Computed example of a mutant assay.
Amino acid sequence: MKYLVSHFWGDETGAVTVDWVILAAGVIGLALASMGVVIDGTEDLTGDVNAELSSQLISTSF
């Protein structure tokens, strides 16, 4: 029994999977954080473009 417990604690078969899960969670977290920053800038730019296009006058006569 003591051998089984020590073998269980020393086994590193699934350790790489845990590393990849933590790495993937970090990448997803960084993607969400950067998406929040980009969305704010995009909304500001969209408002500026809308205001500029709305203020333009179209001349239909020559």
Rank of each mutant, 00 (worst) to 15 (best):
G36V: 00
S55L: 01
Y3L: 15
E43S: 07
A51M: 01
V5N: 07
L32P: 02
A31C: 05
V5L: 14
D11W: 13
S6N: 13
E52D: 10
S54P: 03
D19V: 09
W20S: 13
V27R: 06
A15R: 11
T42K: 02
F8S: 08
I58A: 14
S34E: 12
V38F: 03
I39R: 02
S34V: 11
S55T: 01
L30T: 01
S6R: 15
V18Q: 09
I28P: 05
S59W: 04
W9K: 12
H7N: 06
V38H: 03
S6H: 11
M1C: 06
V38I: 13
W20H: 10
I39L: 12
I28E: 01
V37N: 03
I22T: 14
F8T: 00
T60R: 12
V16Q: 12
W9V: 10
E12P: 11
D44E: 15
G41V: 01
L23P: 04
I22Q: 14
S34W: 07
D44Y: 06
S6Y: 13
I28L: 15
G29Y: 06
F62D: 15
G26F: 00
D40N: 09
A25Y: 07
I39D: 04
G10W: 07
A15F: 14
S6Q: 11
T13K: 05
L4M: 03
V38N: 03
N50P: 02
S54N: 13
G47Y: 01
G36M: 05
I28W: 02
D40P: 00
I22F: 08
V38G: 04
W20D: 14
L57F: 13
Y3R: 10
L57H: 05
V5P: 01
G36D: 02
T42E: 00
L23R: 15
V27A: 15
V21L: 11
E43Q: 10
D40Y: 02
V38W: 02
I28H: 03
G26C: 05
I22H: 05
M1V: 05
A31Q: 02
V38R: 07
I22E: 15
G29T: 07
L30W: 11
T60V: 13
V38Q: 00
M35L: 09
D48N: 07
E43H: 02
E12N: 15
G14S: 10
A33P: 05
V5Y: 09
S54W: 01
S54G: 12
W9D: 07
S61L: 09
T17S: 13
G10F: 06
H7T: 09
G14T: 10
A51L: 08
D44H: 11
L57Y: 11
D19P: 01
K2H: 15
G26Q: 08
W20C: 12
V18L: 12
A15Q: 11
G41Q: 04
K2T: 05
G41D: 00
A24M: 08
S61Y: 06
V16R: 10
A51E: 04
G47A: 06
E43I: 14
W9P: 04
V49R: 01
V37T: 08
T42M: 02
S54F: 03
L45E: 08
V49L: 13
D40H: 04
G14E: 10
L23W: 13
V18R: 09
